[in-house]
């Protein structure tokens, strides 16, 4: 009786996550995959085949945007890591008590505002008639208005800004768990600050670095709002192309194929990243 009751409890607790996985993730993906391998041969006439995937490789705009998105996401991840690591190190190792909590909260405050509003904030700063442009003009540094929006740099700024918290949190957690005496022991044994960083702090923080990078990379790759608003028509993002196929062109078949290609890309990059850093997914994501 008791065993049956506890088993029932187990399944009841498992039910939401199973439902979530099956109904919201697995079923839609099966549906998308079926759509992606259907070729439209006439009105309401479909055949099974890989023509949609072939279209991706034959049209340079598609695969170039795809490669651009991948490379810029990796770059944004690297930049977020470079900016986030000193912040996390400062919060975790160089502050105590109240200051630590305050700084940590300050990292989170921007997230109280919706992503859309935050991105519009950047647009106010960067546009031709925006704050930065006006400031440069009144300082006499430039003669006319400057357009800082609608380029790759603007996208980069937006992506790093949106995702830096997801880098800082896992890094603070892992760096917090590093015993200060290990750092002191490093200095005591004659290591320079760089050597202590390279040989003691970074190896210890590796799981946090990798889990932060995975999250930031996935957020960047799948981001829609920031690249569209800050990049405009001059800087295309692959999620924008998927949107266009589904909504503007009403070509669900090609859109689904793009979706699967993006899924394959993110899986591949994360796999390669884990192999290069000699970490495993359970080590990194399980801890964060």
């Amino acid at each position: 009786m008791r065993a049956d009751a506890s088993r029932l409890g187990f399944y009841l607790l498992l039910a939401p996550i199973l439902l979530w996985l099956v109904v919201l993730i697995i079923l839609p993906h099966i549906g998308l995959f079926v759509v992606s391998i259907s070729e439209k041969v006439g009105p309401r006439e479909y055949e099974t085949g890989f023509a949609n995937y072939a279209a991706f490789f034959t049209e340079p705009l598609y695969w170039r945007t795809f490669a651009r998105t991948a490379i810029m996401s990796i770059a944004a991840t690297a930049l977020t890591l470079i900016l986030g690591f000193p912040i996390a190190y400062y919060i975790a190792k160089l502050t105590r008590g109240r200051t630590k909590t305050t700084l940590f909260l300050m990292c989170m405050i921007p997230f109280w505002v919706s992503e859309l509003v935050r991105t519009f904030g950047w647009m106010i700063l960067l546009r031709e008639t925006g704050v930065i442009s006006n400031a440069l003009q009144s300082l006499g540094l430039v003669s006319g208005p400057v357009e800082l929006l609608y380029n790759d740099a603007a996208i980069m700024v937006g992506l790093v800004y949106t995702s830096i918290l997801f880098m800082v949190v896992p890094l603070v957690t892992t760096l917090d768990s590093l015993d200060d005496s290990l750092i002191e022991a490093g200095y005591d044994l004659g290591a320079s600050s760089t050597a202590v960083m390279r040989e003691i702090v970074i190896p210890h923080a590796m799981p946090g670095i990798v889990s932060g990078c995975i999250v930031v990379f996935m957020l960047s790759l799948g981001n829609y709002l920031t690249p569209i608003l800050l990049g405009g028509k001059d800087s295309l993002w692959f999620t924008g192309m998927i949107y266009t196929q589904f909504i503007t062109r009403f070509n669900w078949e090609l859109g689904s194929a793009f979706g699967f290609l993006l899924l394959a890309l993110s899986s591949l990059v994360i796999f390669v990243g884990l192999k290069l850093s000699r970490q495993s997914l359970t080590d990194t994501m399980g801890r964060a």
């Binding site: 002191e184 022991a185 200095y187």
Partner: peptide, 16 residues
């Protein structure tokens, strides 16, 4: 500390 001719055995040893 990294330029002193002293070494320290820490309370919890601090092996890496």
């Amino acid at each position: 500390p990294n330029k002193r001719p002293v070494s320290m055995v820490f309370q919890h040893l601090a092996l890496f």
